[in-house]
């Protein structure tokens, strides 16, 4: 590597040392990874999604391996917003951007969690997980209906002045419409994708592989779908996009940047390799250096069309 690469990016008002965050639900509350690497080597972390009260999750089995991926239905298990603030957040190093992730079953509760998080000194921003079933709409995900999503963004926006990111569900017909609704209601950015709704079968019992029946698919298997959605969404809005889905290496991450993502999140890869996020960050830097980019941010949105012929 000859030239030094500037890896810093600005994600909706948050300065990140490099464009690699960790995805909610795949990095615990952060300190679990302290034995493996110095946390300030990555851009930041998105913590496990929080509800108003602590919740325990679904009965097992909660996970299943699938081709180049995995299914999960953990079921909202988390320590609750108050314990996060009192016990988890203080364990994280000063200067590491931390985004809290929020999910709930109705809009008032979402807003209340955001309010409680807003005063916290160490928080860099909020990510609203819009992939939860809305109890009042018979279990449809917030992120699956555009009016519901718009209301969710409006109310959480009102509840907090922290940088606000909306994490979109991929289980929709047109992701552009959802992205535009977030922008119109004042979100500072969008994160996508969350897991794809999926099903697998245990043939020994002919039951679903997961106790919950349906689960969320993650890992390399979903990467091309995620890239497509990130590209579509980034074309549709001006607010920054954080790309998520099956990122294992620096090169995978660069593809998301090229498709318009300002930053990325590493998820399932953290399970098989607790140092994955650092290796992704290093890999992005290597790619930029090898291809003559002085700044990683210059890679964003550089997908090149084929020359038109005829």
């Amino acid at each position: 590597m000859t030239v030094a690469v500037d890896t810093e990016v600005n994600l909706g008002g948050i300065t990140l040392r490099n464009p690699v965050l960790t995805a909610s639900g795949t990095f615990g509350y952060g300190s679990e990874f302290a034995p493996f690497f110095a946390l300030d080597r990555i851009g930041g972390i998105v913590a496990k999604s929080l509800t108003l009260e602590p919740r325990s999750g679904n009965l097992p089995p909660r996970i299943a391996e699938t081709p180049a991926g995995m299914l999960n239905a953990i079921g909202l298990e988390n320590v609750g917003v108050d314990a996060f603030l009192a016990e988890k957040l203080p364990l994280l190093p000063e200067g590491l951007p931390v985004l809290a992730s929020v999910f709930e079953t109705d809009i008032d509760r979402y807003a209340e969690v955001c309010k409680r998080l807003s005063g916290a000194p160490k928080l860099a921003g909020l990510e609203i997980n819009a992939s939860c079933p809305h109890v009042k709409s018979g279990g449809i995900e917030f992120g699956q209906r555009v009016e519901l999503l718009a209301r969710l963004v409006r109310e959480t926006r009102r509840a907090s002045s922290l940088p606000l990111f909306i994490k979109l569900s991929p289980n929709v017909t047109d992701i552009r419409e959802m992205a535009r609704a977030c922008e119109a209601e004042g979100a500072d950015g969008i994160s996508l994708i969350n897991t794809l709704q999926a099903l697998d079968v245990d043939l020994a019992t002919r039951r679903p592989a997961l106790r919950n029946g349906l689960g969320g698919l993650s890992g390399p298997a979903i990467r091309p779908v995620a890239l497509r959605m990130v590209w579509q969404a980034s074309q549709a809005v001006k607010i920054p996009v954080c790309g998520i889905g099956g990122i294992m290496t620096g090169e995978d991450a660069v593809k998301f940047l090229v498709c318009g993502a300002t930053a990325v999140q590493v998820g399932t890869a953290n399970y098989l390799n607790p140092m994955a996020a650092v290796e992704v960050a290093d890999g992005i830097e290597r790619y930029a250096a090898a291809h003559g980019f002085a700044r990683v941010s210059e890679l964003v949105g550089t997908l090149r069309p084929y020359a038109s012929s005829r």
Partner: peptide
């Protein structure tokens, strides 16, 4: 001996009641 994804307490996949 449960199914596990991570092995160090972050995926919550290995929960037993």
């Amino acid at each position: 001996e449960n199914r596990m994804a991570c092995g160090f307490g972050v995926c919550l996949g290995c929960a037993v009641p």
